[in-house]
Amino acid sequence: MRVLHVISEMGAGGAEALVAGMAAAGPDVGWESAVATAGGFRVAALRDAGVPVFDVPLARRSALGVVRAAWAVSAAVRRFRPEVVLAHNVSASLVARLGAPRTPVVTVFHGVAEADVAGAVRVLRRVSDRVVAVAAASADRLRAAGLASEVVPNAVFPSAPVHDRATVRAALGTAPDVPVALCPARLEPQKRHDVLLDAWASVGGAVELWLAGDGSLRAELEEHAERVGGRVRFLGTRTDVRDLLEAADVTVLTSDWEGMPIALLESLAAGRPVVASDVDGVREVLSGGGGVLVPRRSPAATAKALRDLLHSPLAREVATARDGSGDAHALMKSYDELLRTVLEARRR
């Protein structure tokens, strides 16, 4: 089966990590995969692995941008001749439908803000043959807005760190015994780093916070970090999050909303407990353990949970008494069955 993934970019992010893993694992279930995207650091690894990558400019929520992106997808379809398109998120689904009007389009819905769900449903009804939500909570939101969807929970594809804990810490100038909290998230409004920084001001002790990601709020957040004090490191966009997890002690996400964040699953797979906002897919993953859920937008509760885990190895051990990384093989099998069902229905 020839599968074309359409995604805005292939940089840092959960959807991007999922596409990279699925494209690499495709041969295990009989897929020949290609990716249509505007670029990003993961593109080189895809090409090195023999996965064709087609350049598609970002749509940028403008009519002209959508037309240009759809034209590029159309060119990719002519060259690769996919049997099915797997479009990741709403804008990619619109572009995929316009660029591949005769090819089935299956949308992977990674999530949107609650206020945007109704608009997303209006688009997806028109452009998608089927919709897959990455978390049950996301599927519930779609259903409440009038759109039924499948649920295939996100999973991480196994990987080992390239460098050990001591090497990573030495490279960053962090002492071996300093407790470290890692926040692997884009510096964008959804992720609410302001809440995290307010919490960090009252964590106390000789601890460090690593912010792995970049975005439009970086300058504002750097000023915020200076005001609240504490040791905060802005690491920028990183291609070595697995190594950072090896060197950190706790992962923290203070997002306003999430689908099912790959960063959280990667942390659990690496044996690192999570402090995270009690929202949608995060709640699903941590319902069986693996970390501490805190109320959304609560610096006080976030600070307490970070203090408890950073200053107590025993608390961290208890919190990670569960592997919540998901099953990548089961994920691929579920998608394979779904796509083949869609193709069979189209043939009929």
Rank of each mutant, 00 (worst) to 15 (best):
M22T: 05
L98Y: 07
T320N: 01
G259E: 09
P52S: 06
D280E: 15
P179Y: 07
D243H: 12
R348M: 13
G230C: 13
L124G: 08
D308L: 06
A201S: 15
R233W: 10
L187P: 06
G236D: 12
R165W: 11
E317Q: 13
R2A: 09
A15K: 09
A44S: 04
V77E: 12
A219G: 14
T320A: 08
A118N: 05
A12L: 12
E188Q: 15
L182Q: 08
R231Q: 11
A185Y: 08
V66C: 00
V275L: 05
G281D: 07
C183S: 15
A135H: 12
L217Y: 00
V275G: 04
G230Y: 10
G21M: 01
T107D: 03
F109K: 03
L209A: 04
T254W: 04
A148C: 00
V203N: 02
R47T: 11
A160C: 09
A59R: 08
G271Y: 01
V73D: 06
T174E: 14
G230S: 12
S255C: 11
R192Y: 06
S202V: 15
L196M: 07
A92H: 00
A330V: 07
L182T: 03
D140A: 15
V203Q: 00
A185S: 11
E258W: 12
A120P: 00
A225C: 04
L306R: 12
